[in-house]
Design a protein around this nucleic acid. Structure first.
Length: 293
DNA sequence: GACAGTGTTTACTC
DNA sequence: TGAGTAAACACTGT
């Protein structure tokens, strides 16, 4: 499931290959996933515009668009939600190098989960796949972009993510559990189920702890571990636990580094105790009852 | 073959 | 006001 490191990886991949590419044609198969809702308006609003850069804010891909004579810039915002994929191919339907066939991704694009296609003047194509159709694509102006992006909290990899700011955010709701708080996108942007569980493990605290029970040193450690796990995962190009793939269709390499997520019933890498799994804050929650207190 | 589980976000109720 | 839950959807594992 795309969280910060996965979205960051896709954004970086796309920024490298798509820069200065001019959109020739857009195909939309599921209009309810786009804004404006009419496939014609969406397509005509993108045609002849070129990709200036691709970046990320929270879990949202931000594509800056420009056009020589246009007065204002435009932005294409894309949220992958649970199962969204953005796969770029140098030529239409060209087989993915190094990728493996898998549900909702890989070879032979477009397929039944391809809901939008962006064709560029050089013949390359960007495919948007989303098995569960939770994702969305929005073509917006600068001010509309701000309305969508601004409710999100601090970027955990930004310079301003200091221990002080982190502590202030975390302790804003002292009675909430740690997991609930870390998943709150309005406080810290980009953390999801995988990295919350992983950061809690590395810190040695249970995700179910109410925030007010955490010591000063717990918070210091947690702050460091959140940054560390995100950075390491980006270095490994993300976690392909299920559907996530990179922009070239290949998988991320972070799964071997997971300590608790997806490891219920397996031995803790640190102490050998079996990893537990419960449901908390509406999500599967993984932890080692020996290493985490 | 039915059905719970998978996790992001929004909208809704209590 | 905050917490909890359902819903959007489709596939996997039991």
């Amino acid at each position: 499931m795309p969280e910060l490191p996965e979205v960051e990886t896709v954004a970086r991949d796309l920024n490298r290959v798509l820069k200065n590419h001019v959109i020739k044609k857009v195909v939309v198969r599921v209009p309810k996933m786009i804004l404006p809702l009419s496939a014609e308006d969406f397509g005509s609003g993108l045609k002849t515009w070129s990709i200036e850069k691709v970046s990320r804010r929270a879990k949202i891909i931000v594509i800056n668009l420009s056009k020589p004579k246009a007065k204002a810039k435009k932005f294409l915002l894309i949220h992958l939600k649970m199962t969204g994929q953005l796969i770029w191919m140098p030529k239409i339907g060209q087989a993915v190098i190094g990728g493996h066939p898998q549900p909702g991704g890989g070879h032979n694009l477009p397929h039944k989960h391809t809901h939008a296609e962006f064709h560029f003047q050089d013949g390359s194509v960007l495919y948007f796949n989303d098995m569960r159709k939770f994702g969305w694509l929005k073509l917006v102006t600068e001010s509309e972009k701000e309305i969508i992006l601004s409710p999100h909290g601090v970027e955990p990899l930004a310079k301003d993510f200091s221990l002080t700011i982190f502590t202030n955010l975390i302790t804003k709701y002292p009675n909430r559990t740690l997991k609930h708080t870390l998943l709150d996108q309005k406080l810290i942007a980009g953390l999801g189920n995988i990295y919350v569980d992983e950061a809690c493990f590395k810190t040695g605290v249970l995700p179910t702890r109410p925030v007010h029970t955490l010591s000063r040193s717990d918070l210091t450690k947690l702050h460091q571990e959140i940054v560390a796990v995100l950075k390491l995962s980006i270095k490994k190009k993300g976690t392909s636990a299920r559907n996530y793939v990179r922009a070239d269709g290949t998988k991320g390499g972070f799964v071997p580094y997971l300590n608790v997520y997806g490891r219920a019933g397996l031995a803790c890498k640190q102490c050998g105790n079996l990893i537990s799994k419960t449901k908390h804050a509406g999500r599967g929650t993984h932890f080692c009852s020996k290493c985490q207190k």
